[in-house]
């Protein structure tokens, strides 16, 4: 009887000691997919991206940046943007001066009150 009581107590302690609490800070930034080229012709181009999550910060601007140099960023590339918060799928179209046959790098972005979030970089070649 004593042995079974001790066994029970050990098992009970093992179970309760297995509990632990971990805090995960709330993620603030939005999440968006890589941009895609929806349409490109000699004079205009249309890019698109999906929003997975808006985060906790207010979104004030969204759009795309492309460049023929590594790591396109706002201020270091051609930016197409619109003010406000986008739908969960957004696309923007603009006139372009891209050189036919040249490789370009493209990102989508969302600017919040706290910073700017870029999607992963995709490459495309202007075939026109």
């Amino acid at each position: 009887m004593a042995a079974i009581k001790y066994t029970s107590i050990i098992l009970f302690v093992l179970f309760l000691s297995a509990c632990a609490e971990v805090e995960l800070a709330p993620r603030k930034n939005p999440r968006l997919s890589a941009a895609t080229v929806q349409k490109i012709d000699p004079v205009s181009v249309r890019f698109a991206a999906k929003v997975y999550d808006y985060g906790t910060q207010e979104v004030v601007e969204y759009g795309f940046v492309y460049n023929d140099k590594p790591t396109p960023r706002v201020g270091d590339g051609i930016t197409i943007s619109r003010a406000g918060k986008p739908d969960d799928f957004f696309e923007l179209e603009t006139a372009h001066t891209m050189v036919p046959g040249r490789k370009y790098l493209l990102v989508a972005f969302m600017r919040t009150t706290n910073g700017i979030t870029y999607s992963g970089i995709v490459e495309f070649v202007n075939q026109r």
Partner: peptide
Amino acid sequence: MGKVLVFVSPMVLNRYFASLL
């Protein structure tokens, strides 16, 4: 994402099984 329990979650279940045992 907020405060969460890891490992044996929720704790109520944990206590339930311990008590059962």
